[in-house]
Amino acid sequence: SGELYCSLPNPRNVHFESINMKNVLHWSAPEGTGDGVLYKVKYSVYGVGRWIRKPECRNINSTWCDLSNETSDYEDQYYASVKAFLNGMCSDWMETTRFNPLTDTKIGPPMVNVSSTEKSISIILTAPEKWKRSPEEESVSLLQVYPGLQYNVSVLNKKTKKRWWFSVSNNTLVVPWLEPGTAYCVSAQIHVTTPLLYSGFSKEYCIATLRDK
């Protein structure tokens, strides 16, 4: 392909950043280069090996490239590579380590819905969806991807500051024997046992139990 003489310093720290299997390639500019550096990106499926160029990430000046579409089959593993160009010079291709979407993605926190009665609160938990190409595409919950997915739930009595912890596999939890007319705050986290993955905690959702009639 008529490669130029490649003496430009290499892009650094080429790696995938993945959340809910939205897989974006990131890198840092070559050392000592200011503005004007352009990049091109290619990727390959491990075990198939043919490098495939990503046209939308050809001659770009940003230091990221969304490869979610190309790496959406999480039963495969992938490599990606970046090359830099500046003033007629180029760098070497710099590769990622092997990327396994199933084990290397970060999981977002669950959605939390709370409702209350006089002496209990009901919590409905929803796992995030896997990244999808378009809104019209059928949604796939991460629950389908990780059958061993569980929820760690924290319930805080705002008055007494007493906190309870629950670990549940299904997506509903009823916390009974609570004090009427009291505010409780709920936060939840996803825990996949294998491969071992934790999401961050959701923000707190507070609700008051109804007052005694």
Binding site: S44, V45, Y46, G47, V48, G49, E75, D76, R98
Partner: peptide
């Protein structure tokens, strides 16, 4: 995995997953 430089071949996943 860094010691395995052969990208074009897999033992377990290709050609049949």
């Amino acid at each position: 995995q860094a010691r395995d430089t052969i990208r074009t071949l897999s033992i377990l996943s290709h050609p049949h997953s």
